[in-house]
Design a protein around this nucleic acid. Sequence first.
DNA 1: CATTTTGTTTAATTATTTTCAAACAAAGTT
DNA 2: AACTTTGTTTGAAAATAATTAAACAAAATG
Lengths: 292, 292
Amino acid sequence: MKPYQINELERLTGIKAHTIRIWEKRYGLITPLRTSTNRRYYSDDEVRKLLNVSTLLSKGHKISKIACLTEIEFTNELLAENSLLKSNNSYEGLINDLLKSMLNFDEQSLESIFQLSVTRHGFYNTMLHVVYPFLNKVGMLWRIDEAETAQEHFATAVIRRKLQAATEALPKAINKGNKFLLFLPEGEWHDTGLLFADYVIRSKQHESVYLGQNLNQESLLKVLQVVKPDYLLLFYITARPIEEIRKQLLLFAGHNEITVLVTGTPSLISNLDLGVSNVVCLSSVNDLFDYL
Amino acid sequence: MKPYQINELERLTGIKAHTIRIWEKRYGLITPLRTSTNRRYYSDDEVRKLLNVSTLLSKGHKISKIACLTEIEFTNELLAENSLLKSNNSYEGLINDLLKSMLNFDEQSLESIFQLSVTRHGFYNTMLHVVYPFLNKVGMLWRIDEAETAQEHFATAVIRRKLQAATEALPKAINKGNKFLLFLPEGEWHDTGLLFADYVIRSKQHESVYLGQNLNQESLLKVLQVVKPDYLLLFYITARPIEEIRKQLLLFAGHNEITVLVTGTPSLISNLDLGVSNVVCLSSVNDLFDYL
DNA sequence: CATTTTGTTTAATTATTTTCAAACAAAGTT
DNA sequence: AACTTTGTTTGAAAATAATTAAACAAAATG
């Protein structure tokens, strides 16, 4: 893996460069290697670690306490906060089975578990209560270095195929519902959730224009002049300044007759306080389902 | 659109920074705006322009001649080289219909044209002779500033859905063929072609492990220890030093019993001369089809 | 074979980023 | 109220990246 400079680390984690430095000095939290000319460089491991520190911070832990934890205690706190333990009844087994199949790149097994879940709980519940928690867990495993990027790619590819096939199989809308425009802003690459939203919207007989990942602002604004949707739906997952999000949402909301539905990482979207009536923060896809 | 510095422009186009400067000085080919402190910054328009210059160069045009062309002549040369005019018989009409639908974000129309083509020419021929040229044409329209990123996103999303639904509908392989590992290396984001390759491979009853876009080298190497495929299939589309590609391919090919199938931009993969027997360059998906 | 075209190399100047230490300020704790 | 924790600000030195001009060298052209 290519090494990151401190500024890239800031971009990836959303933690300011001088804060990263002072943590290093005061607590020795993350002690990066140096180039021959004394510049810090960080590996994937350190990105992971810092992301995890950031998570614990956002959950109310103090940096001084975090710094005192051993590696094992640290991981435990993290798992506790993300409540992977939250053994939500009958789904937990399926999720763990999916994990095992993923780690072995076993597509047949992955598919049959998925199929089993669909017959048992239906497609919607499978996505919401099995696949979603599964993907979260995969992300968490990556964060504690127990899973590879490739394994996540493999699993999401299968899931996406299922999702798109299911969407394709839906009866075509008879042009009665509202028109939704779905996209992820620049820098956002994980569109599996958005594909599920697309499925949900279409299943409720609404019209959907799906634009996918990493769409820049200017391009979107031009689209709005052509498409005239009733709703925008977008996610903010990746770390970035809240102010940037606020500005962008207000810009989108400025178009008459549009309602902006936004969801994503709670710390990014929960305390926006836009003071505008046509921006609605949803906390999950289930909220979207209810909203429709 | 955010402005690019000269180094980012180098990364995006594969043309060295000092070459970009000297072209500016000698021919005034691209005259970027400057910051208040005299640094060059480039917009999307200039990225496009430089990509196009690069294309003409690779087709044997001289930089001095290119510099003399008017904007219109320039576009004409470009279109001629990319032989969009190559009106390959009965497909041309369908392609243009798709374009029209895309520009209007008209999914219903896009779908019915696709369906028409499938019934007329079959799924495989539709992908190969309609969708592929269509996507090329879209890329070209973006290059000459006649299409938006969003329109391409919209069209590819529909096509990907069709592709994945078709793949999903294939009868499951009975574990008899070879095992393929499909992925795009770091920095490669356009996996529609790879999805089609996935479809082709599965349709020929081979086994496929699909890992998708932007997979880093280390991660892939770890996968190889678990998955043990007979074949690797990967694309290089985005500009990068040939030497980097060569090194990476040799690394992949170094694993015993593996055949590496590689395709992508002709200028990147045609003159690799690896001197290894287990790396095969394919010039198109049709080559893959024949190969299987 | 001389000339032109073209990209690379060199060297000096300026701008930006990283580094470190120390002071500062807001908030929570004792 | 004094102290602790925590992140930000300030300022100066070092490293990196961008700027220009001029010289260089390989390949194509005449």
